[in-house]
Design a protein around this nucleic acid. Structure first.
Lengths: 230, 230
DNA sequence: CGTATTCTTGATTGGCATCAATCCAGGTGG
DNA sequence: CCACCTGGATTGATGCCAATCAAGAATACG
């Protein structure tokens, strides 16, 4: 029996990790595999929130658009992330792929049906929600109370920490998103985002071997800027 | 048997509502009642996150302080709110009382011990986390992408909607918090918060019979400013 | 190789912060 | 009862950070 799950990068993710060894077959059986090309969407704001997703591979983002076009990015996603839970009947965010992306999709009701047999699954969903909430509160603080330099320092350290989980520890961070995406995450304009990269570079805190690769040259100073552990 | 729960304003709250009728005795038995005077704290940032709380009466706020003193308010709390869940071993926020406040406190482990007998309790905790997360994402958008006028319009409509649940629908909103608290919620300064009240008042969108009472005189325009349902 | 998109940089503007003073309400004590 | 005090709220003057407007450079792509 060769389940896709058994070789999946996200096998130990918050969600799938709820099933030990062969148990994963239960989850596998009711999953639908999806592939989305770069620029495509897993789901759209305003669409009926029937499904939840676990990212298997690829990078993406979660965004919300206002009626006048202003955009706020809520999160950058990577393999292992569980997304799509919504307390409202329609999604309040869209999930876009930054690179080619694969994911598993479940009807939320199908997952809930497993809670009886697999209480660990429900516990995981609870923990995921709590963890995402904690991260979002960090973001609230950053958006409300920090300036452009501090915001970017925060994002770079945050991405480094997250990418360490999939690529291993490194001082180099990959930025699969555009400067515009970064700006919309930090609540600034593209120009300010671009200038801020320049500021941190001239200060020697980072190096930019390419637009989409940042070297954290001085983690201590970055951490101080971000008011955070290095 | 006269349980405190039976006459509690928060009897039907997200948490306590998980127990129908007499079942509530289970929750009542392991609850500790607390009273905190205005200005006091239910729990402090950095303290060990052993307890969770359900607000029985009174208004409060959840705040985070940076090492340099900058403050961000994450939420204003009211009766029925469930707070204190933390994915980290220490709280990342403090819970302060704005008025005299009463609350029930549980050791988080004691609640978890009930999950087997009362699966509805775990479901509620999951839903609460999801709902708080959704609200926090709204806040992220507001902090990242809206100007001072829009921010205040959003807060007033949000408070009106929440207070309607405990006081009933009304065009008058009570502001038990100071202008400084409002500023720290919206990510602006006290002066800007104060000026912004003035702007909305001169535009005729609100009236201010007292500093702590706002009349939503023109909900439609406020909703348009906030990009939100009236 | 040409075109489109993204990124960067410059000049200027504008919104909010900062600094500073005054106003006001509630509480206190003479 | 009222002068005084205190913390919060408001208003004004000025400055600064990031937005906006504009142009050019680098990179990706057909």
């Amino acid at each position: 029996m060769a389940l896709i799950c058994e070789t999946c990068i996200a096998r130990a993710s918050d969600l799938c990790g709820a099933f030990a060894g062969g148990e994963i077959a239960v989850l596998d059986a009711i999953a639908v595999r999806l592939r989305v090309e770069a620029g495509g969407y897993l789901f759209h704001e305003e669409a009926s929130a029937d499904f939840v997703y676990n990212i298997s591979s690829g990078m993406g983002l979660l965004e919300r658009l206002a009626s006048d076009g202003r955009r706020q990015i809520m999160s950058f996603t990577q393999p292992g992330d569980f997304i799509g839970l919504s307390p409202t009947p329609v999604y309040r965010i869209s999930a876009q792929a930054l690179t080619e992306m694969t994911a598993c999709r479940w009807r939320i009701g199908d997952l809930e049906a497993l809670f009886g047999e697999h209480p660990e699954l429900e516990r995981r969903l609870r923990l995921i929600a709590n963890r995402v909430l904690a991260t979002t509160l960090d973001q609230v603080f950053v958006l409300g109370r920090r300036n452009a330099n501090e915001k970017l320092a925060y994002l770079l350290l945050y991405l480094a920490e997250r990418q360490a989980r999939i690529f291993g520890p490194s001082d180099e961070v990959w930025l699969p998103m555009t400067r515009g995406d970064i700006a919309d995450y930090l609540g600034v304009t593209v120009e300010t985002a671009s200038r801020t990269f320049g500021v941190l570079r001239r200060k020697g805190l980072i190096a930019l071997p390419a637009a989409d690769r940042v070297v954290l040259a001085d983690r201590a100073s970055l951490a101080e800027l971000a008011d955070r552990e290095p």
